[in-house]
């Protein structure tokens, strides 16, 4: 090792040391302990008792676990693609160089920065079957008797999806930047070929923003699998009615801090990690087919 190499190594480690220490203390050690706990019965107060694979066997039998997994998958399957479509649509509209674009952008972006606790309380009130805004407007404008929303097991998950569409502002801004990078010549070429607006969107815009779509898709997946605060606030930590909003992270929280079944919860956490990893890898593999890498 040359003198410069040694100096670089010393400096590099020195500058990276906060992260390296933090990684060992706040990530690696907890990670290893989490693996250990997932094979134990553990409640933080007493010493862990080794029980082998029992937690995982118990998970397979636990109806609530499967319900929670189903609820999370339902939410993910609907909210992620719909949010993507919705944010692309808004970005496309904003990209028409209309006047007052910054005003619109602000309005669409605002919901994403409202503290989640506040927005959850707000939506709980907006969707209240008695006296809520949505049902009131439905009745007034189209004379329709609105559903129970969060009070009905059939409508509670769609309500959550609806709420998630309200906060597509972040993804929209990213798409907006992606759209700005699409070279205008391509549109001119497409126009010469006689493409209409729809044709231009399908053949030019969409292929050019696939990388951005991939990014938002992966982030959306990771976030929606960890969906927690909204349901916690809106159902008082219970996942009511009829467990229809008992999402995975909420059930995990209940097991860890309400029933102190920390070993069981650790096993759940690892299952969640596997699911997220599986979904992400699947998306990344499939992305080879549909993502167009351009300009790189």
């Amino acid at each position: 090792m040359t003198r410069i190499e040694r100096r670089n190594l010393r400096n590099g480690l020195l500058f990276a040391s906060p992260y390296i220490i933090g990684f060992l203390a706040f990530t690696l050690y907890p990670l290893l302990m989490s693996v250990y706990y997932s094979f134990c019965q553990y409640n933080v107060i007493s010493e862990p008792i080794w029980i082998g694979l029992d937690n995982f066997r118990e998970l397979a039998r636990d109806n609530d676990f499967w319900t929670a997994l189903y609820n999370t998958l339902f939410y993910t399957v609907f909210s992620v693609p719909l949010s993507l479509a919705f944010s692309v649509a808004l970005a496309l509209l904003l990209n028409q160089k209309v006047k007052g674009m910054s005003v619109y952008r602000t309005v669409f972006f605002l919901p994403t920065i409202v503290p989640i606790v506040a927005s959850s309380v707000l939506w709980l009130w907006v969707l209240n079957p008695e006296g809520g805004l949505v049902n009131g407007m439905l009745k007034q404008c189209i004379g329709l008797e609105g559903p129970g929303w969060l009070a009905s097991p059939d409508w509670s998950k769609p309500s959550l999806v609806l709420m998630s569409l309200w906060s597509v502002g972040g993804a929209m801004v990213i798409f907006l930047a992606g759209l700005a990078d699409v070279p205008t010549e391509l549109y001119e070429v497409a126009e010469l070929d006689g493409a209409g607006p729809w044709g231009k969107f399908l053949n030019v815009t969409l292929p050019m923003i696939t990388l951005t779509i991939l990014f938002n898709l992966v982030m959306g997946l990771i976030n929606s699998f960890q969906y927690f605060t909204q349901v916690f606030v809106m159902t008082g930590g219970k996942g009511t009615p009829d467990n229809s909003t008992l999402v995975y992270a909420l059930y995990l929280y209940q097991n860890s801090f309400v029933y102190l079944k920390m070993g069981y919860a650790s096993a759940m956490a690892w299952m969640l990690f596997m699911v997220i990893l599986g979904a992400t890898v699947a998306v990344l593999i499939s992305s080879k087919r549909w993502v167009h890498y351009h300009g790189e």
Binding site: F23, Q226, A265, S266, A269, L272
Partner: peptide, 22 residues
């Protein structure tokens, strides 16, 4: 490693961290 930990759901370290802080 930094990139990989971004993928890690916080639930995995939630409980051991509680034990550490305890």
């Amino acid at each position: 490693l930094v990139l990989a930990t971004m993928m890690l759901p916080y639930q995995v370290t939630l409980i051991p961290l509680f034990a550490v802080y305890r």
